[in-house]
Design a protein around this nucleic acid. Structure first.
Lengths: 343, 343
DNA sequence: CAATCCGTTGGTAGCGCTGTCAATCTTTGT
DNA sequence: ACAAAGATTGACAGCGCTACCAACGGATTG
């Protein structure tokens, strides 16, 4: 008879309120700020909700309150282990807060990023974490229009959209290569894959360090746009060796490549570091346990994710950091694979 | 004057409809099913939306339509590389569909899982993907009440909540250990970490294989609840060696542990496979490029994620698979690290 | 030529919750 | 004892969108 639409059949707040003998709005408050209720009502609503198995409808809540309790996170890859540490920090920091994480994967595509950003825009997240500082003009416009706290992570640079947590990839790689120079190596190769903006800046650090030591030679460089992997490290190193057989050290754009280089050395009976020094980037867990232990640049990935979320949460509460850009720095981890050259 | 609440200031569908000269409902249809409009109106709504920069309000849509376009995914870890392949499959399969992925991380905690499931319940996802088959009774009750297509991944077993895609960890490990037995190894150790249900079932496969070859000896086993890592593989192997110095092979619960064992062998000048055979589990990318190449059990992780999403999408459209449980199997990848024993 | 069908369009009435303000009941200070 | 301040509670009116039905026009059919 009725032409009204079918109700969902789920328990609603009104039912809970009725059973508890309070008004719907009081029941609503119970779920958002229990302290505001008198103990007796609080008790009654709690037991009514439990008895009925009430689950709040987030869509209705979001529509009525004009906000959500979601923090959007945009990262370029789930396969690259670097991000799993960042994500761990992100999830750990969000733990205990009422915000939940909504993860989206751009696959290193700026178009994908634009699209996902628009999806986030439709969802009105309470905060946003995006990777890198190379958004398209379009993406940046969306970000600026979003009107929620936002942190760019992994890198630092001028002109943050809102806040930033990261470090200078260029400086870090510069330090790594300078270390090799100091150790007495001269023909230092560079191996890089997946030449995303951060890898490119690392390459910039390599180039600057080599140039300032007057050791730069384009034949020492081997890069590819192909996604990084341990196997690829071996392949690139083999290619590099045939192009420049006289190299005495390799600086790798990341640790996976470095491990691949180590394996390739083992395969060719090149001893590390006597015949070939190796330095990686990121200081993944396995670098210290490889044989020989591999030098690397430690980056504070977990902290990066953690503080990005902390900053967003604080900003939601109205507390802004003294400086919008936070530099987490890096540490050179010197191990056997880059021991001084014996002449 | 008015005590009405402030409007959000965003462009609404009504504004778009007005500019396009159509009714709101027609504009609404444009965004959900453009084919239903006549070409002229379609054009008008499209340009109006573009001109105003309209972004649909997903909360309002979800509330009115009683459904969302989100597929929830529950996995136990973002750090364990095994899941990054599964996730790649999941994201790839959802690409192009209008559904987006909402990822949640249980950190191997069944309590966390229950809580996240309740969060999903409040969000009314269109589909759900959960890891493993060991949900608590409580979680299972929530899952069954969710009334959306659902796939349990990573394992197979009787009594799926709805659908399943996976393989038998026990059979796979049984095959790996039987392979070592066939190769002539006798004192085969087992190294395991993070003893989650899947690791435990793999251990079960080891135990059965050893028993059926009459080689089982509890001293050959070294496990820990600590999260897995490459370094840990070395530590556990060292512990195992001191407990059972006569072992001639190790079956590792996963590939990270296997690589750690290889490094520890290199450190101790044990040659692989002459002094010590190694078999891993999962066949990660690096296994083939290690020196020597490491044997492993290939598991179809990407396919698992991919078909889980495909099955959910098909089920949303009303097409159910002929069998609710899909066994993706495994392949033994035999490499140099488990070459036959020379006597 | 009326009857029927299909494709397209619009009107109405919510979806389930919360912001806003007002009303009521306590507590506190003088 | 009385006013002022604070703590609780409730009524009302939407938030922006879509389900549901109805209506309209043109094409097709007997």
């Amino acid at each position: 008879m009725e032409r009204k639409r079918a109700k969902s059949g789920e328990i609603r707040l009104t039912e809970v309120a009725k059973l508890a003998g309070v008004s719907p709005i009081t029941a609503s408050r119970f779920f958002r700020n229990p302290e505001a209720l008198s103990p007796s009502k609080r008790e009654r609503v709690a037991s009514a909700a439990k008895e009925l198995g009430y689950v709040p409808n987030l869509a209705a809540r979001a529509l009525a309150s004009q906000r959500t309790e979601v923090i959007g996170v945009l990262i370029p890859s789930l396969t690259n282990n670097v991000f799993s540490d960042v994500l761990r920090g992100i999830y750990d920091a969000s733990e205990g807060s009422r915000y939940s994480i909504q993860l989206a994967n751009t696959r290193y595509s700026i178009l994908q990023e634009e699209q996902l950003l628009r999806l986030f825009q439709a969802q009105k997240p309470a905060g946003l974490i995006v990777t890198g500082i190379d958004q398209t003009a379009e993406s940046r416009a969306v970000l600026e229009a979003m009107n929620c706290p936002m942190v760019q992570i992994m890198e630092i640079g001028p002109d943050p959209v809102d806040m930033m947590v990261g470090f200078s990839h260029q400086d870090a790689e510069f330090a790594a290569v300078s270390h090799l120079v100091t150790q007495g190596f001269q023909r230092i190769g560079f191996v890089g894959a997946q030449m995303d903006p951060r890898m490119q800046r690392r390459f910039g650090g390599y180039r600057d360090a080599m140039k300032s030591a007057s050791l730069f030679d384009p034949r020492l460089i081997m890069t590819t746009p192909v996604p990084t992997s341990i196997t690829l490290g071996g392949t690139l190193f083999a290619d590099l060796l045939s192009k420049a057989p006289d190299i005495d050290a390799v600086s790798c754009g990341n640790d996976d490549l470095a491990l691949g280089v180590l394996f390739e050395c083992q395969r060719r009976q090149l001893s590390v570091p006597e015949d070939m020094a190796i330095v990686g980037f990121n200081d993944m867990e396995f670098m210290a346990s490889a044989v020989p232990p591999l030098s690397s640049v430690r980056t504070n990935r977990y902290e990066m994710g953690h503080s990005a979320v902390s900053m967003v949460l604080a900003a939601i509460e109205g507390t802004r950091p003294p400086e919008p850009v936070v530099d987490l720095g890096f540490q050179l981890m010197i191990r056997e694979s880059s021991s001084p050259r014996r002449t």
